[in-house]
Every structure is written in C-alpha cells, then in structure tokens.
C-alpha cells in the first residue's frame, strides 16, 4: 500500500512541476507540440527512474557507510550528467528528427532541477530501494502528464483569440498556474 501511495502522490499530489515548481524550463520550452512533449516526458521519466536507482545505490552503499554525506550533491550531478549523455546519444542514434525537435532542452535535462530534486528527496526521505524506484518512476510520469496536458492546451491556444500582450509566454504562464491550482485539488487523496 505504501508503494502505491508514493506512486500516486508523485504523479498527482506532489507533482514535480505543479507542486514543487521544479523543472519549469523544459515544461515551458518543449510544450509547444504534443509529440515532442511526449518524447521529452519519456526522456525525463527514463532519466528520473535511473537517477533514483543509481543515486540511491551510491548514497546508501558508498556515501553513508563512509560518512561522505556532504558529497551527495556532487555525486548526484555526476550521475545525472552521465545519464543525460547516455540518453542523448541514444536518441540521436534512434531518432534524429526527435533529436532535432528536442534541441537544446535535451542536454538541459542535466541541469533540470526536478531530477536533482528527486535524487535529494530520495536521500532526504530515506526511502528504501523499491520506494526509490517507484518514486522516480512516478515523478517522471507526473512530469510527463503535466507537460502533455500543457502541450495539449497550448496547441489549442494557437487557435484561440488571445489578447495581444498575453500571447506567447504570458498566456502559457497563466495556464500553468491554473493547472497548478487544479492539481491542488488532489491534495485530499493522500493523508
């Protein structure tokens, strides 16, 4: 039950984008088209899940036994950077058009605070291995959900009659904030 609660809470209640306000950069940058939003979401989900696993392993097997807690951030950066490199190479090999569509936001997953936040939260909450995996997967799916919803709304926004000064970034931020408000409705789900 505990795992299910973590999973649901990571997707809906404590959504990284809409509750913690982490990872806003790709959330706004790659949410213009649903296709690229889905790929971005999946790339982030992959990196998040693997980061949760690897950073948990490093934290619990290397850092804590040697009393090196203060190296957490540095070693997590290392983990994230390597994983993003890996994903980048993989996407470039498998789908060059996707590689072009994601553009600069793909290497920018490295500096995506959502992923760093995830690794630090796993360490802070002292999750077990299974919990860490579920939390990483859930958070990634939560990010994917948020970015796809956003992209779907923004595709419709292109057709809407928006006041001139709000076009572009303005209306996107308003939509994001309304989505965040809506997601607050999920808070009652987890006690």
């Amino acid at each position: 039950m505990e795992l299910v609660a973590i999973f649901i809470s990571a997707i809906l209640v404590n959504n990284f984008v809409l509750y913690y306000f982490l990872g806003i950069c790709p959330f706004l940058g790659v949410s213009k088209k649903i296709d690229s939003a889905i790929s971005m979401g999946l790339a982030v989900t992959f990196v998040m899940t693997i980061t949760a696993v690897v950073s948990w392993a490093i934290n619990n097997w290397i850092l804590i036994p040697h009393g090196l807690d203060y190296l957490k951030i540095v070693s997590f950066i290392l983990v994230i950077a390597s994983l993003v490199q890996l994903v980048e190479m993989f996407i470039r090999k498998v789908s060059p058009p996707l590689y072009q569509a994601l553009g600069i936001y793909l290497p920018l997953i490295t500096t995506n605070c959502a992923i760093m936040g995830l690794a630090l939260l796993v360490a802070l909450r002292e999750y077990g291995f299974a919990e860490a995996v579920v939390f990483g997967l859930g958070s990634g799916l939560g990010f994917t959900l948020a970015i796809i919803l956003m992209a779907a709304i923004r595709e419709q926004l292109d057709l809407a009659d928006i006041p001139e000064p709000l076009k572009g970034a303005g209306i996107s931020l308003i939509v994001a904030s309304i989505m965040a408000l809506a997601f607050m409705g999920f808070i009652g789900m987890i006690k």
Binding site: I58, H66, L71, S82
Partner: peptide, 12 residues
C-alpha cells in the same frame, strides 16, 4: 572522498 569521487567519475 577524493578516491571515491575519482572512482565514481572513472566508472561513469
């Protein structure tokens, strides 16, 4: 810590 980080970096 130096050895740990070097080893980690090398591994990755």
């Amino acid at each position: 810590p130096i050895i740990t980080m070097t080893a980690l970096g090398f591994l990755f």
